[in-house]
């Protein structure tokens, strides 16, 4: 099969970007989308042209590196998949496919389709952890955790940090990411001690980074390669509200 690609090219964050039309010929429908780009890039390189820069690594949908917006959809067609899990059989011979980077102010373009997602790391650094010194943990079975709780925490923990939620959100909001990461630890007994500060700091860092605001449209959840539920955003809202209330009204009591 053959397809025409309309690819976003941008040399770096400071230069203007534009679309470039490239032809991809003699493709096998069983190729992955990224393998199709490999083929196109090999041809470009053979002509001493710069290949299309795109992020990728594990190519099995777990590392969260790949970040293509294919025909306006972060991670392209298909439910619950990352860009690397999109196969050419999802397209028709002769299709024109638009490929763009994830677009959001806090994700500046590094080159072509590669964006900088350091903002996510900053959010985790602010509070996405349990404070525990190496070697100081009690026996792992000392705290039983109901299976349902552990399973729900795992649902949230499945986040691969790719940023598709931000890319899909009409407002470039990072709330699904922050909700998943804060909820995972806030649900578990291990995370209780820092529950309030965690959500407060993570939300504050998210705001600083310049992400937009959730308008409860749940595009994030639909685009999420791990289909993380928007329910966690509800939980984050709740945790945040109570954390604020507790900070305001219960702080003093604890000092006594």
């Amino acid at each position: 099969m053959n397809v025409t690609l309309k690819v976003w090219r941008q040399k770096n964050a400071n230069e203007e970007g534009h679309f470039e039309t490239l032809e991809a010929r003699n493709l096998n429908p069983n190729m992955s989308f990224l393998e199709m780009l490999d083929v196109v890039n090999n041809e470009l390189e053979a002509e001493s042209k710069m290949p299309v820069a795109f992020d990728h690594d594990c190519r099995e949908g777990i590392c969260g590196t790949c970040s293509l917006t294919i025909n306006g959809q972060p991670h392209g067609p298909g439910e619950g998949v990352a860009s690397c899990q999109v196969y050419m059989r999802s397209f028709k011979d002769g299709d024109t496919i638009t490929i763009e980077p994830f677009r959001a102010k806090p994700f500046p373009v590094i080159r072509d389709l590669v964006v900088d997602r350091t903002a996510f790391d900053k959010i985790i650094q602010a509070g996405g952890f349990v404070t525990v010194r190496t070697g100081s943990a009690p026996d792992a079975n000392a705290i039983p955790i109901p299976k349902e709780t552990a399973d729900l925490a795992m649902d949230a923990a499945a986040c691969i940090g790719c940023g598709a939620c931000v890319a899909a959100c009409k407002n470039a909001s990072a709330m699904l990411f922050v909700a998943a990461k804060s909820s995972q630890l806030n649900m578990l007994p291990q995370g209780q001690a820092e529950k309030d500060t965690r959500v407060l700091k993570m939300v504050a860092t998210m705001d600083e980074a310049g992400f937009g605001n959730c308008t409860n449209q749940y595009e994030c959840s639909a685009a999420c390669p791990k289909l993380i539920s928007e329910d966690f955003i509800g939980k984050m809202n709740r945790d945040y509200l109570f954390a604020n209330l507790r900070q305001k009204f219960l702080r003093r009591k604890k000092k006594i």
Binding site: A140, A157, Q190
Partner: peptide, 22 residues
């Protein structure tokens, strides 16, 4: 042995049985 203890404490959601143990 210590790895499991430490990772559970870090909030790694290991699979659990209905009794809540690993």
């Amino acid at each position: 042995v210590k790895i499991i203890d430490h990772c559970a404490a870090l909030g790694v959601p290991f699979a659990r049985e209905y009794g809540g143990l690993l």
